[in-house]
Amino acid sequence: MSHHDIDIDKTVRTYMMVFAALIVGTILTVGASYIHLPTGPAIALALLIASAKGSLVVLFFMHLIDEKKFIYWLMGLAVVFFIFELTVPLITEMNNIDLGS
C-alpha cells in the first residue's frame, strides 16, 4: 500500500470494526467449546471460526485486501503447498492408522 493515497480515517474505522469482530470471534470459539459437540463437528466449527478470524487479520491488518499481484501469487502458492503439507501425509498414512478406535 503506498502511503500517499490512503484515507487514513476510514482505514482506522475499519481497524476498530475488525478489532470488535475478533473479540466476538474469540468469545464464540470458547463458547462453542462448552456446547460439547462430537469431536468431528467441534473441530470443524473451531477451525471455521479461527479461519474467519485469521482472514480478518490477514485481509485488513496485513492489508492483503489491496495488495499487489505478486503478493497474491506468492501467498497463493504458499497456501497451496501448505494444504499439500497438511493433507497428503495424512492421506498417505490412512492405511497405517486405525481410524476406527
Binding site: 503447498f81 499439500f84 497428503v88 492421506i91 498417505t92 498414512e93 492405511n95
Partner: peptide
Amino acid sequence: SFIVWAHHMFLTGMGSAM
C-alpha cells in the same frame, strides 16, 4: 517437485492408492 516426495517412501506401507 512438491508433490512427488513419497516416491522415496514406497516401502513404508502407504498402500497402493497413494
